[in-house]
């Protein structure tokens, strides 16, 4: 899903929890796949929260609430902690999310999102709190994320924040490029490094 990222405007799915770990995003039993089948992972996103222990749908979980939708997931702090499994980013992308807004991200998961063209947007706790309040009041509330200017805006309240992103990753996301192309173009540098450190 190497979809170029520019500007998105969307309703949101709220998950106002801290420390959401990658074992919840995609439980280990779904990691046995040998292909990058994003639909399979997306179908099982938050599987154990979406279902009751008897397998029936957990109607209280936000993904099962038809009044919420859109391609932006709004979480709490320390999103994606724990396992390095990129399957978590594949599940988020496979479900149809294009951005995750949180007040902080776990490092490995953040890289995994970027490498799958899902934009991790780090905002202040205050902005996040207001956004969750906005969404709770109006499930159809929209957020606008502009990657070129690195701004995120709560369109209901007009609150706007600048977010940080590595300039190289920004370029990759906006142009649909991945790191391997970049690295392969530096083969000569790698060989020179090896000679110098032999």
């Amino acid at each position: 899903m190497k979809q170029k990222f520019d500007i998105i405007e969307s309703t949101c799915v709220p998950l106002p929890l801290d420390n959401v770990d990658t074992d919840q995003i995609i439980p280990a039993r779904f990691l046995k796949a040998t292909t990058r089948d994003e639909k399979f992972f997306g179908d099982n996103l938050f599987c154990d929260w979406r279902h009751n222990p008897d397998g029936s749908l957990n109607k209280d979980f936000v993904l099962n609430d038809p009044s919420y939708g859109g391609c932006i997931l709004v979480a709490g702090k320390n999103f994606g902690s724990g396992s390095s499994r990129e399957h978590a980013a594949w599940a988020i992308a496979g479900y149809g999310f294009r951005a995750v807004i949180a007040s902080s991200f776990a490092d490995i998961h953040k890289n995994n999102e970027l490498n799958n063209f899902v934009l991790p947007v780090t905002v202040s706790e205050g902005f996040l709190k207001e956004l969750h309040a906005t969404i709770a009041k109006d499930h159809g509330a929209k957020v606008r994320i502009e990657l070129p200017s690195q701004t995120v805006t709560n369109l209901t309240t007009g609150s706007s924040e600048h977010f940080e992103i590595n300039q190289y990753k920004k370029f990759c996301l906006m142009n649909g490029l991945d790191d391997i192309d970049y690295l392969l173009s530096h083969k000569k540098d790698i060989e020179e490094y090896e000679k110098a450190h032999a």
Binding site: S84, H87, N111, N112, N115, D178, D179, I180, L184, I190
Partner: peptide, 18 residues
């Protein structure tokens, strides 16, 4: 340090990581 699968592929392809 731990990395994702895309990064594993980078290292396989170039012995480097960004």
């Amino acid at each position: 340090f731990g990395i994702g699968t895309s990064e594993v592929e980078m290292v396989m392809a170039s012995q480097c990581i960004l």
